[in-house]
Structure formats: C-alpha cells, structure tokens
Deep mutational scan, measured.
Amino acid sequence: MSGIALSRLAQERKAWRKDHPFGFVAVPTKNPDGTMNLMNWECAIPGKKGTPWEGGLFKLRMLFKDDYPSSPPKCKFEPPLFHPNVYPSGTVCLSILEEDKDWRPAITIKQILLGIQELLNEPNIQDPAQAEAYTIYCQNRVEYEKRVRAQAKKFAPS
C-alpha cells in the first residue's frame, strides 16, 4: 500500500471527524483483525431537504486505489439507486470521479460526498449510466419523482 495514499486518507479521516456536513457519514471499514482499512470507507449521503430525495439516507462505498490521490476513489451505492447517473452496479457516474475528466488530487472526501448529493437531485442527462431511470427522467418527470420519493422512504434511517 502506498504511504502517500494512507497518509492522505488519515488526514481526510481526521478532517472529517473534526468537521463534516450534518447527516453525512464517512467511516473507514475494519479489517478482520480489527485494524482500520483506510482504503475502503462506508459512507452515507442524506437526501437534500426540499427535494424528492429528502428523508432518505443512501449508503455508498468509497474504494481507494494505491495511487490515490492521483486517481479518484470508486464510489458505489449499496444497494444501487434508481438514478440516471448511477450504473446498474451502483457505481456513480460523475465527472469529478473520473481521472480523465474533472478529478483533481486536491478534491476531498467531503467535496465528493457533497457533489454526489447535488447530483442526486440534478442528474447530468449528457452522461446517462442507467437506461430506465434516464428514460423516465426525460419522458415523465412526475413518475420519476414518485419513484425517487418511494426510494427515499425505503432508505429512511430507522
């Protein structure tokens, strides 16, 4: 494992614990031996107030490669969400998460999670990743928002 990646992720964890947006979660997972795995984080993004996503808490896994922060983490909703920019596998399609697009090593975990929260309610229809959600979003916004509200209710924190 890269010392650069681990040191950056340790800084990220410290900064997150000191200050993070209300309702968001970002925690490194534990290895079988109980030690912390900084390369694999369990996160959760709350649906934004005043949107059909409100009330939901959407679980996301963030996986970092050894060359982080040169390369972005892979962000994957578990379980996958109904959304035009979420692949059926759950992987998020967002330009700041793509090395050859808008990724920059200075982007923080907090910025990534806030960017994904923004994307939930403002899909990028130029870059669809899920045919069904994309089609319904474009053709029947009322039905799309109904499905999103049902999903938010399903993923409401207990």
Rank of each mutant, 00 (worst) to 15 (best):
M1E: 06
S2R: 05
S2L: 02
S2F: 14
I4S: 04
I4G: 07
I4Q: 11
A5T: 09
L9G: 07
A10W: 07
Q11V: 13
Q11S: 11
Q11N: 09
E12V: 03
R13Q: 07
R13M: 02
K14C: 14
A15R: 11
K18V: 12
P21N: 06
F22T: 01
G23W: 07
F24N: 05
V25I: 15
A26D: 03
T29D: 10
K30Q: 07
K30G: 08
K30L: 06
D33A: 02
D33Q: 03
G34F: 04
M36Q: 03
L38I: 10
M39S: 05
N40D: 14
N40M: 12
N40A: 15
W41D: 00
E42V: 13
C43L: 04
C43T: 15
A44R: 02
P46E: 06
P46L: 07
G47E: 02
K48G: 03
K48L: 12
K49A: 13
G50C: 09
P52G: 14
P52I: 11
W53D: 04
W53S: 00
E54W: 06
E54P: 01
E54C: 03
G55T: 05
G56L: 02
G56W: 01
L57C: 12
F58I: 05
L60M: 12
R61T: 13
R61W: 08
R61M: 10
L63N: 11
K65V: 07
K65E: 15
Y68I: 02
Y68E: 02
S71V: 05
P72A: 13
P72F: 00
P72T: 05
C75P: 15
C75M: 11
F77Q: 00
E78N: 14
P80M: 13
P80G: 13
L81V: 12
L81T: 03
L81M: 11
L81F: 07
L81E: 00
F82Q: 02
H83L: 03
H83D: 04
P84S: 01
Y87L: 02
Y87C: 02
G90Q: 04
G90W: 01
G90N: 02
V92H: 01
C93A: 05
L94M: 04
S95I: 00
S95R: 01
S95H: 00
I96C: 03
I96Q: 06
L97I: 15
L97N: 01
E98I: 15
W103H: 06
W103L: 02
R104G: 03
R104H: 01
P105W: 03
P105D: 01
P105S: 11
I107S: 13
I107C: 15
T108S: 15
I109L: 11
K110S: 07
I112C: 12
I112L: 15
L113E: 02
G115L: 00
I116Y: 08
E118C: 10
L120C: 05
N121W: 09
E122M: 12
E122W: 08
E122L: 10
E122G: 08
E122F: 11
N124F: 08
I125W: 10
Q126I: 12
Q126K: 12
Q126Y: 10
D127T: 14
A129C: 04
Q130D: 03
A131V: 13
E132C: 09
A133E: 01
Y134C: 07
Y137G: 02
C138I: 13
C138T: 15
C138H: 08
C138N: 15
N140Y: 07
N140R: 10
R141L: 10
R141C: 11
V142E: 15
E145T: 13
K146N: 11
K146V: 13
K146S: 15
V148N: 00
Q151I: 08
A152G: 07
A152R: 01
K153G: 02
F155L: 10
A156M: 09
P157W: 13
S158K: 08
